[in-house]
Amino acid sequence: MTIKEIQEEIIEEFVGFDDWMDKYAYLIELGTDLSGLESQYQTDQNLIKGCQSKVWFNAKLEDGVVKIEADSDAIIVKGIAALLIRVFNNQTPEAIMNADLHFIDEIGLKQHLSPTRSNGLVAMVKQIKMYGLAFNQKMNN
């Protein structure tokens, strides 16, 4: 699926939630289920330090697509990270580079990705985009 299609799918899923509790319960579930990063990857180098929660993030290029892993000490943040991984994982650097990320807005989680939130997610999206750019350059060289 394309980044756009995956986003549509997520939006579709979230339409089913009547109230905020269901939505956050689902995020908690996603966060709990995300395998996260093995402790050897929970390094300072992979750490995005928001002052409220930590996000560890790792990306690599494999067979022309980007493999993304992430972890957080806060479960809901980890749940949102799981959604971001679902959207970006196994996509080409070019697709990531050019992606228009709109689902966060539409599923009502915009507040968590606003630059004033120091939870590491904003930096994570920035990082994913940067990796897209960097890997794309690497592939074209």
Binding site: C51, Q52, D73, A74, I76, V77
Partner: peptide, 22 residues
């Protein structure tokens, strides 16, 4: 078992303003 940021975020959804962090 519950991170302070998770707690704060969910309380916020209920209209309750608390502080979280250091």
């Amino acid at each position: 078992g519950i991170h302070f940021y998770d707690m704060g975020m969910l309380l916020d959804q209920m209209g309750i303003a608390v502080r979280t962090g250091t």
